[in-house]
Amino acid sequence: MIYLLQSEQQLNCDMETAWNFFSSPHNLAKITPDDMNFIIVNEILDVPIYEGMIIDYKISPLFGITMKWRTKIKKVRHHLSFTDQQLKGPYKQWSHFHEFIPNEHGILMKDIVRYEMPFGFFGRLVHRLIIHKKLEHIFNYRYQVLEKVFNTEKK
């Protein structure tokens, strides 16, 4: 079974600012809850994402258990969208599409995640009991951080 997670958020900034933030792998840790212990483990130069970029990291998504995750950046459309796809990790498959749409208030950022759990029936059960809530928590945390970064007036 393929699951779908969608979110959107208005960012009160220009496209260059939004793109620079989201196209830097180094900002992933800033928008990931601290309890997940997100660490990029391969050497990533301070360059924006590009098609074919591989990002290896360690995370502790549940119960403090550390696991490795490898993603590949695909389909980069500069200042419009990009997709990261899991090559190795906790899901049977994971594809995260990021889209940036200019509007009169700045940038509407949309996320569409399609993912599938491993282990058949057991994976679906774990999804219903734990994973779905954990992903909602991660995206809610991300929303709050991005509100502070992009939508809080600085005085």
Rank of each mutant, 00 (worst) to 15 (best):
K58V: 09
I59V: 08
I59S: 10
S60A: 14
L62F: 15
L62D: 09
F63M: 11
G64D: 05
I65K: 13
T66Y: 07
T66H: 13
M67Y: 03
M67I: 14
W69V: 06
W69L: 10
T71I: 13
K74H: 07
K74Q: 15
K75W: 01
V76C: 07
V76D: 02
R77C: 08
H78D: 10
H78E: 15
L80C: 12
L80F: 06
S81T: 04
S81P: 02
S81I: 02
S81Q: 05
F82C: 02
T83L: 13
T83P: 04
D84V: 00
Q85C: 11
Q85S: 05
Q86I: 03
L87C: 00
L87W: 00
L87V: 12
K88C: 12
G89C: 05
Y91E: 00
Y91P: 09
Y91S: 03
K92H: 10
K92V: 07
Q93P: 07
Q93I: 02
W94E: 04
W94K: 00
W94M: 03
S95C: 13
S95M: 07
S95T: 08
S95K: 04
H96Y: 02
H96G: 05
F97G: 02
F97T: 09
H98V: 00
H98A: 01
H98R: 01
E99H: 11
E99L: 02
F100K: 14
F100N: 15
I101C: 08
P102Y: 05
H105M: 09
G106Q: 08
G106M: 07
G106H: 12
I107S: 13
I107W: 13
I107Y: 13
D111M: 01
I112C: 15
I112E: 11
V113F: 00
V113M: 04
V113R: 01
V113L: 10
R114F: 12
R114I: 10
Y115P: 03
Y115I: 03
Y115A: 09
M117Q: 02
M117T: 04
P118K: 01
F119Y: 14
F121P: 11
F122D: 07
G123C: 05
L125Q: 05
L125V: 14
L125T: 13
L125Y: 07
V126P: 11
V126K: 08
V126N: 06
V126R: 05
H127T: 05
H127K: 01
R128K: 12
L129M: 14
L129T: 11
I130S: 07
I130R: 05
I131Y: 05
I131L: 11
